[in-house]
Measured scan of single mutants.
Amino acid sequence: STVKVRLGHLEVTLHNVSEEDVRELRELWKNGADEEDLRRWLEEWKK
Results as ranks from 00 to 15, higher is better:
S1R: 13
S1F: 10
S1L: 14
S1C: 12
T2D: 06
T2W: 04
T2M: 10
T2K: 08
V3Y: 01
V3C: 03
V3F: 01
V3A: 03
K4S: 10
K4C: 10
K4Y: 02
V5G: 01
V5Q: 01
V5C: 02
R6T: 13
L7W: 07
L7S: 02
L7V: 14
L7M: 11
L7N: 02
G8I: 03
H9C: 10
H9N: 15
L10D: 12
L10H: 14
V12I: 14
V12R: 02
T13M: 07
T13P: 01
T13A: 04
T13K: 03
T13I: 14
L14R: 00
L14D: 00
L14C: 06
L14S: 00
L14T: 00
L14F: 04
H15Y: 09
H15V: 09
N16R: 06
V17W: 04
V17K: 01
V17M: 11
S18V: 04
S18G: 06
E19R: 06
E19W: 10
E19G: 05
E19Q: 12
E20F: 06
E20I: 08
E20K: 13
D21K: 14
D21R: 09
D21E: 10
D21Y: 13
V22E: 09
V22K: 07
V22A: 11
V22G: 02
V22M: 15
R23F: 10
E24G: 08
E24Y: 12
E24M: 13
E24Q: 15
E24L: 11
L25K: 00
L25E: 00
L25C: 01
L25Q: 00
L25I: 08
L25A: 01
R26D: 15
R26W: 14
E27Y: 03
L28D: 01
L28M: 13
L28Y: 06
W29R: 12
W29V: 15
W29E: 15
W29F: 15
K30C: 07
K30N: 14
N31S: 12
N31C: 05
N31H: 09
G32K: 04
G32L: 07
G32E: 06
G32D: 08
A33V: 11
A33I: 09
A33G: 10
A33N: 04
A33T: 05
D34S: 15
D34E: 11
E35R: 03
E35W: 09
E35P: 08
E35F: 10
E36D: 14
E36G: 12
D37F: 07
D37G: 09
D37M: 14
R39Q: 10
R39L: 14
R39H: 08
R39E: 08
R39S: 07
R40Y: 06
R40D: 07
R40F: 06
R40K: 13
R40G: 06
R40P: 00
R40W: 04
W41D: 00
W41K: 02
L42T: 02
L42G: 00
L42I: 15
E43H: 07
E43L: 04
E43F: 03
E43N: 06
E43D: 14
E44K: 14
E44M: 07
E44G: 09
E44C: 08
E44L: 08
W45T: 05
K46N: 12
K46G: 12
K46W: 15
K46A: 14
K47N: 11
K47L: 06
